[in-house]
Amino acid sequence: MRRIAILAAGLIAALSPVAATGQSMTPMRGEVRSFTDAFAVRVFPGNPYNQRIRVEVHVYDQDFQPVAARITPSAFLLAGQASRPVLVVVPFDGANERKVRICTESIPFPSEQTQIRAQICGKFFGHRRF
């Protein structure tokens, strides 16, 4: 029974998400023409580690203020050496063009005095066509 408990604890430790930080994202530049009230960008966050990490995708304007964009998915676990598509739909909010930063962020190591959060930001330019 004790062995099972130890094995279960070991498995939980092995399978729990590793809070390492590291990111990549492609593409990092883009220009989109849209005929609707929003434009869409598909980015591919990547995990350069061999273990899975938690990734969050955020959208900011040029002043790094959050933009109410639709991000699918906005937070997820990413397997080691893997990447996955994330669809970002950015509203023009009445403007004819909009510049945004789409940023892939990671969760820092816990229990350290000075943590480093890695953030990869791509710059995207949406044009509205009528």
Partner: peptide, 12 residues
């Protein structure tokens, strides 16, 4: 196109 990968080695 421009690409960038950050890998954290250690915290401070």
């Amino acid at each position: 196109t421009a690409t960038c990968t950050i890998t954290i080695n250690s915290n401070g």
